[in-house]
Design a protein around this nucleic acid. Structure first.
Lengths: 232, 232
DNA sequence: TGTACATCAGTGAACGCGCGTTCACTGATGTAC
DNA sequence: TGTACATCAGTGAACGCGCGTTCACTGATGTAC
């Protein structure tokens, strides 16, 4: 790697890092090339050596956020755990921890679209699925080990839902039984609902200790899956 | 009411209506006085006769959205229903229907903050609680009728959660047992999680028929509360 | 190792744009007598 | 009912701002011989 390439890489990282920092400071998932350049003490046009347009920078930030979240979840999945339930608990707690640590990144990937910007689905979708796959693979392992408790309502799905999950199974996106995918989706939206409400400050007036609430709900979820002991 | 007052009222409504329409067209919860004035074929400064600043218009839109949602939920609660479960089902289905019919309004009240705008909590909070109160009052009625099934995990809450819910009970914001408030919060975040993911297009790649999925999940929720028959 | 040339990061000036907001004003509507 | 005055909706010009993006350029870095 030449010196030029080396410096280029550093500058490129700095751009993204300052973009994220500014999102954090303003508290909104907004990105402005001019503002970034100003803070870097560079001229704005210089940034066009690194990104063909502002929207391309946004896209990169989205993809990297998805990837970083997935990295964190994978790391959590690899921590030593006594059971599938504990392993999944680690992952799900990490999900919230990441969202709280980087709320603007979370809003960027899961929240409102940025005005005048539309994320190219073919780029963001695979990145988005990586994180979900971490949860699914644990559920799948538990399922293969016969530890997953499938209740009647997990198996008797509405026909339309059944077929669309079965399609996912067939296309091989996830080679899993539809029931397992279903549990994954259920777990995901429940987690997600709590986090979204908390991030946008709708939970706090009701439940003071959102951490304890989250943990209680996740445990209740895992109990209903039969993954941690409990009377469900 | 003088002619002047009458016209003023009409214009004021038109401003809000066009603001909402433009949010729907752009697909983002963004409001611009200039853009509104342009479409009304008025000059932008004229709008300052109606709102002291752009942010005040946004606040009014937020409050009205909360109120309109609460109206819809109350209407749904008043529809004839054979049981508390059916009544609650009507309300919860209406919640999603409203969100899908007016996604920008939903994003405005529950999604990302608008850049450079912070909603005054003392104004928006009461409006936000009205909708939640509809769900709570049905749960409370079912509870008084002894039809609510309280499982151990509904009663054994983490101490911190228990105390903050108990505080709500005491301040009289909702004169309900903590367990009922807890069920309300649980129902709310689950509903909410699904709707948020659907609105921002994260559910569709997994579950094609989001309507059927939503209905199934809500029924499963109501079964777990003992409000509609089912094996839970 | 030295020279000639190619690459390319970064600059500064400029573009057109839309925004929120202010100001002094006009002219229609409403009110007091 | 008619007149004098007060109210106030709406206008047009102007402000300063930040934005994304283009363009012709300078000068440092890298490469081929």
């Amino acid at each position: 790697m030449t010196r030029r390439e080396h410096l280029r890489k550093i500058t490129l990282e700095e751009i993204k890092s300052i973009a994220r920092q500014q999102m954090a400071e303003t508290g909104t998932a907004t990105v402005s090339l001019s503002a970034i350049a100003r803070q870097m003490e560079m001229s704005a046009p210089a940034l066009y050596r690194y990104f063909p347009s502002r929207d391309d920078l946004v896209t990169v930030l989205i993809v990297e956020a998805f990837d970083d979240l997935a990295d964190a979840l994978e790391e959590a999945a690899q921590r030593p755990a006594g059971s599938y339930g504990e392993q999944l608990l680690n992952v799900i707690l990490t999900y919230r921890a990441w969202a709280l640590a980087r709320p603007e990144d979370f809003a960027l990937i899961y929240g409102n679209p940025i005005p005048g910007y539309e994320a190219p689905a073919e780029v963001t979708r695979p990145a988005a699925q990586r994180g979900f796959a971490v949860i699914l693979s644990i559920l799948a392992a538990a399922y293969r080990a016969g530890e997953l408790q499938l209740l009647p309502e997990h198996l008797h799905l509405p026909p339309a839902v059944q077929t669309s999950l079965a399609q996912l199974e067939e296309t091989g996106a996830f080679q899993l039984s539809t029931a397992v995918i279903y549990l994954g989706v259920v777990g995901w939206y429940r987690i997600h609902g709590m986090i979204m409400l908390e991030l946008f400050h709708h939970t706090q007036p009701l439940v003071n200790d959102t951490e304890a609430f989250y943990r209680h709900e996740v445990e209740s979820l895992l109990k209903s899956f039969g993954l941690i002991p409990g009377n469900s």
